[in-house]
């Protein structure tokens, strides 16, 4: 791989890049092909072409209003819950090549295959156990032993099992913000999603909780493909393998994370990275 010295302007971004981060993309898990999206008359996403490699972390960055959350929510058809929304183009999910935004595809089915973690932790006002088990119950898993086993697996996967194993029947709302968010991650993991979407998952959390979740995300990618939206560039640099920069509804540039943050190809990207505009 070319080792290019970071441009002086970008060096001011305090980042630590690990050299052992892969510089090559895995086979694609999902591909957005000329994806368009409209809120009523507002053309919010314009011809986005982006490949999401499997079992790696792709981050979406960009200034407020650039459409990164809008793009993320296309993957699990959350937009279908609002009136007057329209998709164009396609997002093909491998290996069966189903078009996630196709009108013939049922959004419920999409949401059963793609998981999401939201900006503000939103556990149900139920016990920790019932929170994580909910997705499993939707799938018809009733057997108490099966449920218990899979709930434990999910909570371990979210690195929170030790903290809640004695409190499984207590309300999830009694946990701290960071713990609630990890329970929400466990809830999403429990159903073995093919892609896990993170919508600014730590923006409401303190630095310690944030660090725990970032560590978790780095670990999780060996098991599930991750797409994360963040407005915190340093987080994107810490956590992701690939970063895509969006601006005003368009995809400006996507590349290996280290390259985006040290030697971006487009000027717009560089201006954003160096803080010329937020």
């Amino acid at each position: 791989m070319n080792i290019v010295a970071p441009k002086p302007e970008t060096a001011s971004v305090a980042i630590s890049i690990e050299e052992r981060r892969p510089q090559r993309a895995n086979p694609p898990k999902a591909t957005a092909e000329s994806l368009d999206f409209w809120y009523g008359q507002n053309h919010a996403l314009k011809h986005i072409n982006l490949t999401i490699p499997e079992q790696q972390v792709t981050a979406l960055i960009g200034p407020s209003g650039c459409g990164k959350s809008t793009f993320l929510r296309c993957f699990n058809r959350m937009h279908d819950l609002q009136p007057d929304t329209r998709y164009g183009g396609a997002i093909h999910l491998r290996p069966d090549n189903v078009n996630l935004v196709g009108p013939e595809v049922d959004p419920i089915e999409v949401r059963m295959r793609i998981g999401m973690v939201f900006q503000k932790a939103n556990p149900f006002p139920k016990s920790v156990f019932e929170n994580v088990a909910y997705g499993l119950r939707l799938r018809g898993i009733r057997n108490r032993t099966d449920l218990a086993e899979r709930v434990e697996k999910a909570l371990r996967g979210a690195a929170i099992w030790d903290e809640v194993k004695d409190r499984l029947n207590d309300s999830a709302l009694a946990l701290s913000g960071g713990q609630m968010q990890r329970v929400c991650i466990a809830r999403a993991l429990a159903t073995d999603p093919e892609i896990l979407l993170f919508d600014e998952p730590t923006s409401a959390l303190d630095p310690i909780a944030t660090a725990k979740i970032e560590e978790l995300i780095t670990e999780l990618r060996t098991r599930v493909t991750i797409l994360i939206v963040t407005h915190n560039m340093q987080q994107a640099a810490r956590v992701s393998d690939f970063t895509a920069f969006m601006y005003l509804g368009e995809l400006v540039e996507v590349d290996v994370t280290s390259k985006i943050f040290t030697n971006p190809a487009k000027k717009a990207t560089e201006d954003y990275i160096t803080g010329r505009y937020g």
Binding site: N76, M78, L81, I108, E109, R111, M112, G115, M116, F118, K120, N122, P123, F124, P125, Y134, G135, L138, R139, C184, R187, A188, T191
Partner: peptide, 21 residues
């Protein structure tokens, strides 16, 4: 709150399941 509904829909629940559960 809307967030609760979103979480349930996000897990693949149908409208009735969100309402009833």
């Amino acid at each position: 709150p809307k967030a609760i509904r979103e979480a349930a829909y996000g897990l693949g629940a149908t409208r009735w399941e969100v309402t009833k559960d």
